[in-house]
Amino acid sequence: MDGTLDHTMIRVSDLEESLDWYQTHLEYEEKDRFEGDGFTIVYLGPEEMHEEGAMLEITHNEGEDVEIGDAWGHIAVRVPEDELEDYYQQLMDEGVEDYRDPESCGGRYAFVKDPDGHEIEIVQRDPDEGALWSLDHTMIRVEDADEALGYWTRKFEYESTRRWEADTFANYFVEPEDAAPEAMSLELTYNYDGRTYEQENGWGHLCIRVDNLQEDWETLLEREAPEYRDPESNDNMYAFTKAQDGHEIELIERDLEADSLFPF
């Protein structure tokens, strides 16, 4: 199983407004688009993104208003080391909502929000670890840290690469073994107070690349992953399982040389 995190999908209320926001402020370009019956899917990413880098998928369903639930955390994007203040100020000058500035975050990171309220963390990374504004990690909240870590290590053979344990919460980062520096990782956030979370429609899914959709799907079933939407029900183009907290995970075979990013 490849295991590379291929993209993160979020839903947006106004497609053109969101496209303009990401293309203007994060300098993303449209990688591909699919127009369906009542919905549109657009893949976005930096112009010079690495082949192991993850894309952002935004989905717009006609007539649907987006609600941001607390099970969904944020995406994080990269800027060069020691340039956090400069890029944050650039966003402020462009009219981006002032949410959590670098000073309030100890000078280590910052947060802004997109038009629907999706949180975007800005983190400092070595330029060799990915293009400017490329996706660094996706954060989701989990209700049981042991179960979440066990799920990702057993089902997808991910490894825990780093952690941060504070007085009231802990962050665990997981990714495939030998992941490229440019690849996106997954951040699992666990709050110690036993709270539960709501999955609203603003949060979509994570997508993982597999080597062979049918064979890897069968392997996941052997490892007792939930059978949510199997390959056959999706014309053998992709499949979906769920993590222990209900977070949806898409599986896809990715031909990086294909004319279209969509397997249709």
Results as ranks from 00 to 15, higher is better:
D116C: 01
D116G: 03
D116W: 02
D116E: 02
D116K: 03
D116H: 02
D116F: 01
D116Y: 00
D116P: 00
D116L: 01
G117K: 09
G117P: 02
H118N: 05
H118G: 05
E119V: 14
E119M: 13
E119G: 06
E119W: 13
E119A: 11
I120P: 01
I120H: 04
I120F: 12
E121A: 13
E121G: 03
E121Y: 07
E121K: 11
E121S: 12
I122H: 10
I122K: 11
I122W: 10
V123D: 08
V123W: 10
V123R: 09
Q124P: 02
Q124A: 12
R125P: 02
R125H: 12
R125K: 14
D126E: 14
D126A: 11
D126H: 15
P127L: 12
P127A: 12
D128T: 11
E129T: 14
E129F: 06
E129H: 15
E129W: 08
G130A: 03
G130P: 01
G130V: 03
A131H: 08
L132F: 10
W133K: 02
W133Y: 15
W133S: 01
W133E: 00
W133M: 10
S134N: 08
S134A: 13
S134I: 15
S134R: 15
L135E: 03
L135Q: 06
L135H: 07
L135K: 03
D136A: 13
D136Q: 12
D136F: 05
D136E: 14
H137Q: 09
H137E: 11
T138A: 05
T138G: 07
M139Q: 10
M139L: 07
M139I: 02
M139R: 07
I140N: 00
I140S: 02
I140Q: 00
R141A: 01
R141Y: 12
R141L: 08
R141P: 01
V142Y: 04
V142K: 04
V142T: 05
E143K: 04
E143W: 00
D144C: 02
D144T: 05
D144M: 02
A145Y: 04
A145L: 14
D146E: 15
D146G: 04
E147T: 10
E147Y: 06
E147P: 00
E147I: 08
E147W: 05
A148L: 07
A148C: 06
A148F: 06
A148W: 08
A148Y: 05
L149C: 14
L149E: 15
G150M: 03
G150K: 01
G150R: 00
Y151L: 00
Y151Q: 01
Y151V: 06
T153G: 12
R154A: 08
R154E: 15
K155G: 03
K155W: 07
K155M: 13
K155C: 10
K155N: 09
K155F: 08
K155Q: 14
F156T: 07
F156H: 12
F156L: 14
F156C: 09
E157K: 14
E157S: 15
Y158K: 06
Y158V: 03
Y158C: 05
Y158P: 00
Y158D: 02
E159R: 15
E159Y: 07
E159F: 12
S160I: 09
S160Q: 15
S160V: 09
S160K: 14
S160A: 14
S160L: 13
S160G: 13
T161L: 01
T161N: 10
R162G: 06
R162P: 04
R162M: 13
R163N: 11
R163F: 03
R163A: 10
R163W: 00
R163K: 04
R163Y: 03
